[in-house]
Deep mutational scan, measured.
Amino acid sequence: MAAAAAAGAGPEMVRGQVFDVGPRYTNLSYIGEGAYGMVCSAYDNVNKVRVAIKKISPFEHQTYCQRTLREIKILLRFRHENIIGINDIIRAPTIEQMKDVYIVQDLMETDLYKLLKTQHLSNDHICYFLYQILRGLKYIHSANVLHRDLKPSNLLLNTTCDLKICDFGLARVADPDHDHTGFLTEYVATRWYRAPEIMLNSKGYTKSIDIWSVGCILAEMLSNRPIFPGKHYLDQLNHILGILGSPSQEDLNCIINLKARNYLLSLPHKNKVPWNRLFPNADSKALDLLDKMLTFNPHKRIEVEQALAHPYLEQYYDPSDEPIAEAPFKFDMELDDLPKEKLKELIFEETARFQPGYRS
């Protein structure tokens, strides 16, 4: 834990890192770190609560700039109880001085990944967590956004079992017609939660990839272990087919990539493993919904509104309290091709509203 900075004593240090967030945020305490930044909790002297502050230093890398800009653009436009918001952003007053960006968010005690390492969940908890994931996802999908990296560590939890989806750095506007060349190379989302079509096709992607990830998360809540822990690309596919069985001819016809289709045709026939054999203690309604989410063919996979209306979630289902976005989200430009200098300018502009004396 960093010592509390005395008023006016300059930035606090946390594990050798400068955290320049005073005077409003003090009493910093280390939480963890990701690929390009550290997260601390801090005391907000204005709202009198502890908050989470993520320090991001992305400006050396085009990919990190892209992810940072995506996350900020999306989260500043989203407003939903099951999606983490941005409360404040701290950065230098000029673009030349801006080396880091500090993002202030609600402090959540833990995440689903940490929880599943230590606790076996009751059916009631599984049901409530799944409902909140789908409630947040309904809003995301209504904005025409794909999260693309749903996994237990991106689901934040607090002691009252509130759940918030975080990390929109890989999110995209849904565009089933656009052929994202190089899709697989830039697709760094965790393999275990990846839909089979991501490994088999490169053309376009749809909201059904997020539903697949939610199915993987439900299976993990039922058993405290990942359902498809593939060691590499082909191993991942083999794990999936080992449980779902061989795809039907109709399902194979959806695979545009001939090499991928021929690979699947070359494999020995596998039978589907019954879900109640894998999860003998699970609620039968939970397994019915799991089956509809972990469907090989993305066109037959359940959609988020149908999933919310499934009998497993009937005690929570309330369409009048499951809000959607006001308007579909649009990125003005494809960020993939922009140089990091341009992305830095866009991050600077996007964060201006939090600067003292800002006038829109």
Rank of each mutant, 00 (worst) to 15 (best):
Y263L: 10
L218S: 12
L112N: 05
Q17F: 07
A2G: 10
V14E: 11
C166E: 07
F78Q: 12
K99Y: 04
A4M: 13
Y317V: 00
S57L: 13
K300M: 15
E303Y: 08
G136I: 00
I347K: 12
V101A: 12
I347S: 14
G8A: 11
I74G: 08
D235Q: 08
I217K: 04
S320F: 08
Q236W: 08
E109C: 04
N123C: 07
P280C: 11
E220S: 03
A92I: 02
P196Y: 04
S248W: 08
L157A: 04
A282R: 08
L222F: 10
H180V: 06
D321C: 04
N281M: 04
I217R: 02
L157Q: 14
K300H: 08
N297G: 06
R77I: 04
E349T: 02
L287T: 09
F296C: 03
A286T: 10
P58C: 12
W212C: 14
L308G: 02
H125R: 03
L335Q: 14
H180S: 06
N262Y: 14
M293P: 05
A5N: 11
E334M: 01
A260C: 04
P11K: 13
V46N: 06
L313M: 15
L241S: 10
I133K: 03
K203F: 05
Q315P: 08
R353A: 04
S41R: 00
A195M: 01
I240E: 02
I133G: 00
L289Y: 06
R194D: 05
I324T: 00
L258P: 11
Q315C: 01
F129H: 04
K164V: 04
Y64L: 15
Q119C: 04
N87V: 08
L75A: 11
Q119W: 09
E334T: 00
P356G: 05
L157N: 07
L146A: 08
R91G: 12
Q62H: 15
V101F: 07
E109K: 13
R301Q: 01
D111N: 11
E250M: 08
N257R: 07
E81V: 12
H178F: 06
L343C: 05
Y64V: 15
P298A: 09
L218I: 10
K270G: 08
T206N: 13
G16K: 08
S153I: 11
H80K: 02
L115S: 02
E81T: 00
A4W: 10
E345H: 02
I255Y: 09
T118L: 13
I165F: 15
L69Y: 02
V39Y: 11
P328S: 11
V18F: 12
D288W: 08
R15H: 10
E109L: 07
L200F: 08
A219V: 12
P298E: 10
H120S: 03
L244K: 02
A6N: 01
L28V: 12
I103C: 06
R135K: 10
H80C: 01
K99A: 11
E349F: 00
L200C: 06
V273R: 00
R225H: 11
H239M: 00
F354A: 04
P58D: 13
P323M: 04
H61K: 08
A307V: 12
R277A: 12
L313R: 10
I256V: 07
K164R: 12
K285S: 05
S223N: 10
C127L: 09
G204Y: 03
Q132R: 06
D321Y: 14
H125S: 03
R261I: 08
S223Y: 15
K259S: 05
S360E: 14
Y128N: 14
E322P: 00
P311E: 09
R50W: 12
F19L: 15
G169M: 03
K259M: 14
D162T: 05
G230H: 01
A352Y: 03
N257Q: 12
A325W: 04
L264R: 02
N123F: 09
I133Q: 03
G22F: 09
A35G: 15
A260H: 01
G85I: 07
P319R: 06
Y25P: 03
A92R: 04
P280Y: 05
A7G: 09
E33P: 02
H232D: 05
L346I: 09
N27K: 14
P226E: 04
F183R: 06
T110G: 05
Y43T: 09
S246G: 02
R77G: 07
A52D: 13
T185Y: 02
T159P: 13
G357D: 15
I53H: 01
I53K: 01
Y30W: 03
S142D: 01
D175L: 11
L184P: 04
L150H: 05
D210K: 10
